[in-house]
Nucleic acid binder design. Structure first.
Lengths: 342, 342
DNA sequence: GTGAAAGCGCTAACAC
DNA sequence: GTGTTAGCGCTTTCAC
């Protein structure tokens, strides 16, 4: 307990087997030609001694660690934590470790993290940018320095690299059409902050659906704010003050939808019958709240997996062409959008 | 984009300033006596060149990385993700990075992780064990090899090191007393898996409260299973089949409490009035479900912070005496336990 | 097929 | 105060 045991190194193995360290190194890495028998002896002894490679040493010698960094706005959040689970799944199976950074959705913290980042200690980076990040030079610099980045969910348009997102535009389109189909005629949208690409895509999906179906559309029905439940509550109250009140609300995410529902309940408005509500994410909470929340389910786990797979390709294949992956969502119909006559 | 720029090293700085690398190294580390002026020149140039230390090299030379590993059962879970946020807060401020491993609550995966762990790439480990981990020799071995571990929440009794937990016994005691105070007379407990220390503490807190208040107590009212909402639903249904049905349920966590509430709703049983329910955690969902869920709020963020602080002490002070920290919970009374006459 | 030796970027005696 | 040197554990030419 007091005494750090010196860990086994390839030198120890070499000495015991009376061969050179280079042979041990080669044998352990299953590359180069090594005499079959020598190799087996090395591998056997390594296992017996419980040899673990020193990643600092390999990293230093090969210029590669097996670390993947993740930078995300939050972690106490169903979507992001599910994405991480997906990333983790792929990373672990490929022998990569996950180094986690959370920005608390602050552009300042994001920059701090990036600037403090020892690029040499990471092989690649997976990032979802914070909502007030206005320019992305810091990411570009890191990439120029040779660190591959794959963006997911909240992606910057101006950077040329692989990106993985859900189909925000079509998901929003579908959500809106669903409300129209169920007889709602005055559909509002409580959006996220302006300037974030996925938020805008959802806005356009909503707008295009309204246009395509010749629905009434009004500036005052579109309210931008943050992503929290409180924001949803606040936005909804604002809508309720309008002279020309909407009779349905499409929320940019489930948390805001939940906030809106709470505001509606507070006013004793019958959710679904008087005002329809639809969210985006499929947070587990959406089945628990009553009435249950209709939502567009994002493939969060899959997004994590795909992002990580792509990043690993960028890491291992220096000239891998950037890919833009768009994953389909799934509309999940529940009670909050049942329509007037239900 | 194609060309990895060679990163700046202390050698570059030394060459440019025409001094030796050791001086640069010393100047940058703010230790040893370095001529004030030399130091300023080094620091200035380092900043200008945007020098970033290579952690593999420092790690190799000093035998320390600035990495802290976290091993937890899940991440898509309010409690654990909040703990991580707390850990992250301290770690980041002290210049440590977080390496994340998730076991999916599988003892097998946990062992795999531990065994694949290159101890040399971590300075310390923060762990919450998986629910079916029966013996903890793998952790002991790692500690013997010189890697400090701090356990939190789900802690093994047999290992001698620092541990940080909420007051599971007293929280459960309080929860049960609260139910008794509100007039519930036949109180059941839907527990976690047997063998996990925090689960048992909550069970004993419950039992002792019943005893102290001379309440009826029955073996069939205590049901053990997993931690999920489904488990809660299932456990509750089982209780409802009993001849001597309980009129209140204390759940080991909020997810199970939520599951139980869903089961009760399904049977059109009035929650609170006919059967009281209380949970443990204070998951945000507990304010959203209707009726809202009375619960024992755990100081998850604080647990993350304290665990991380303790671990850093173990890392920096070789002979730091293990501490056992027990943090108080807070009973939050909501609608699900309002009592019969409310 | 294997060994010797240099080197990855940094730290830490040890000299001066 | 500063430079020289060896060395952390591993990979990788380059010989043989």
């Amino acid at each position: 307990m007091d005494q750090k045991k010196r860990p086994i190194t390839i030198k120890d193995i070499a000495r015991i087997l009376n061969i050179s360290v280079s042979t041990v190194s080669r044998a352990l890495r299953d590359t180069y030609d090594v005499n079959r028998e020598t190799k087996e002896r090395v591998v056997a002894l390594a296992a017996e001694l419980n040899y673990k490679p020193n990643f600092n040493a390999t990293g230093l010698a090969k210029g590669s660690t097996r670390n993947i960094g993740i930078i995300i706005p939050h972690i106490t959040n169903y979507y992001f934590s599910t994405v991480i689970t997906g990333i983790q799944e792929i990373a672990f199976s490929q022998g990569f470790k996950i180094v986690l950074f959370v920005t608390n959705d602050s552009a300042v913290r994001e920059r701090e993290i990036i600037e403090s980042l020892a690029i040499s200690s990471l092989d690649g980076l997976l990032v979802s940018i914070s909502s007030n990040t206005d320019e992305c030079m810091h990411f570009q610099e890191i990439m120029d320095a040779g660190l591959p980045i794959v963006f997911f969910d909240r992606v910057p348009l101006e950077i040329e690299t692989s990106k993985v997102v859900q189909d925000d535009y079509y998901g929003a389109f579908q959500a809106t059409v669903h409300l129209i189909d169920n007889g709602y005629t005055r559909i509002a949208h409580i959006a996220g902050p302006k300037g974030l690409s996925f938020t805008e895509k959802r806005l356009y999906g909503y707008l295009d659906a309204l246009k395509e179906y010749n629905m009434e559309c009004s500036e005052e029905w579109i309210v931008h704010s943050g992503f929290s439940q409180q924001d949803g509550e606040h936005d909804c109250n604002q809508l309720l003050k309008l002279k020309n009140k909407p009779n349905a609300i499409f929320a940019v995410n489930d948390r805001k939808a939940i906030g809106a529902m709470l505001a509606l309940k507070n006013e004793n408005i019958m959710i679904g019958k008087e005002i329809g509500v639809i969210g985006f994410t499929n947070d587990p909470i959406s089945t628990i709240i009553s009435p249950s929340l209709t939502t567009v389910a994002e493939p969060a786990f899959e997004i994590g997996k795909r992002s990580c797979e792509l990043l690993i390709k960028h890491i291992t294949k220096p000239y891998f062409e950037p890919e833009h992956v768009v994953l389909a969502n799934r509309l999940i119909i529940r009670e909050s959008s049942m329509g007037f006559d239900s």
